[in-house]
């Protein structure tokens, strides 16, 4: 009996070495062939530039001559010359841009989430013209950001803008406001445009989640006589929470790298600059590739950190068995 078991064991081991049928072998071989071009291109246009950016952040490279630079360690980030602290981490403009970006992200994503839920609930109801409504809310999403910014710029124009005109007529303001040039209101203007442009994205993701909810639980709640608000907070909201989280994360990551909206909408002052604007300004306008790369690297690290935390916390299941 024991001999038979041992023999079976050897058999299994011998078999294991040649166990892959030609179907599996050829499929795995072709899998690598199929992804190789994409991987090579991504390594070239994403991996390599990212690595170079991080490398440049430790050098004094200048845009005029990118091949002539010296390694200077962490001096772009933080350096001490004769007791005086220098570098990115001591630059108030950098910290202003960080604060601007975080504030912009928090405010716009919060508003978009609330409005997105409302719009999604409306689109989830059956009413004549629902398809048309869904198309209409997609329009702001499709308009290029630059164009949106320009349109709003015009509407917010201090002398001829329609928004000042409306508010004056309604008696809400006494004199025309300089919305985009004024540091106090410029970021609010950016939030308004962002909300206008991206609420539909949020709404559509939430709507997709709403439409996947089983209908019978709502019928059961109706039979039990639960009030609609209770149904929303006790049933709907918990059930769409995972989708809502994904949408919030996607939007937050997008908002954290905001560039074009603020760049075009506001008058490019340091009071309203985002992190991306700051980095590009160092890089292109001031030709300080080293400093700009340091800012870029920090932005990357901040966003990477957020991604890693969310992926770990949300346990987003990736690459699971396709079956």
């Amino acid at each position: 009996m024991a001999g038979a078991v041992a023999q079976g064991d050897v058999f299994v081991r011998v078999a294991a070495r040649r166990r892959r049928s030609s179907l599996t072998r050829s499929r795995i071989r072709s899998a690598w062939l199929f992804i190789a071009p994409s991987l090579i291109i991504l390594a070239l246009i994403a991996g390599w530039p990212l690595a170079r950016t991080i490398w440049f952040s430790f050098t004094d490279a200048n845009l005029n001559n990118l091949s002539d630079y010296e390694f200077i360690g962490f001096e772009n980030y933080l350096a001490n010359y004769d007791g005086e602290w220098l570098g990115l981490l001591t630059d108030p403009d950098w910290w202003q841009s960080v604060w601007n970006t975080v504030w912009f992200t928090l405010v716009s994503v919060s508003i978009e989430t609330v409005l997105g839920i409302i719009v999604a609930l409306i689109l989830n109801a059956t009413f004549p013209g629902r398809g048309l409504m869904r198309a209409i809310i997609l329009i702001p999403w499709a308009i290029p950001t630059i164009v949106s910014a320009k349109m709003w710029n015009w509407m917010l124009h201090d002398q001829f803008g329609v928004i000042n005109d409306m508010l004056l007529r309604a008696g809400l303001i006494a004199a025309p406001m300089t919305w985009t040039a004024n540091a106090d209101t410029a970021l609010w203007a950016a939030v308004a445009v962002d909300v206008w442009k991206h609420t539909s994205f949020m709404a559509l993701l939430i709507l997709a989640a709403l439409q996947m909810l089983p209908q019978d639980i709502y019928e059961a709640a109706k039979v039990d006589g639960v009030s609609p608000t209770r149904v929303f907070f006790r049933i709907t909201l918990p059930l769409i929470k995972p989708a809502l989280l994904v949408a919030v994360i996607f939007r937050s990551l997008d908002a954290l790298r905001v560039f074009d909206l603020i760049y075009v909408l506001t008058s490019n002052s340091r009071d309203t600059a985002s992190m991306s604007i700051y980095a590009r300004q160092q890089l292109v306008d001031f030709q300080e590739v080293g400093l700009g790369s340091a800012a870029s690297t920090l932005i990357f690290l901040i966003i990477a950190l957020i991604v890693v935390i969310t992926l770990a916390a949300g346990r987003v299941r990736l690459g699971e068995d396709p079956r």
């Binding site: 299994v12 078999a15 166990r19 892959r20 049928s21 030609s22 179907l23 050829s26």
Partner: peptide
């Protein structure tokens, strides 16, 4: 059918060992 790999043992179809043959073969 050959849609899954045989971990151990032998499969013969028409006298031929087909463990390593693709389904179509």
């Amino acid at each position: 059918a050959g849609l899954e790999d045989i971990t151990a043992g032998d499969l013969f179809i028409g006298g031929e060992r087909v463990n390593d043959l693709a389904p179509a073969k």
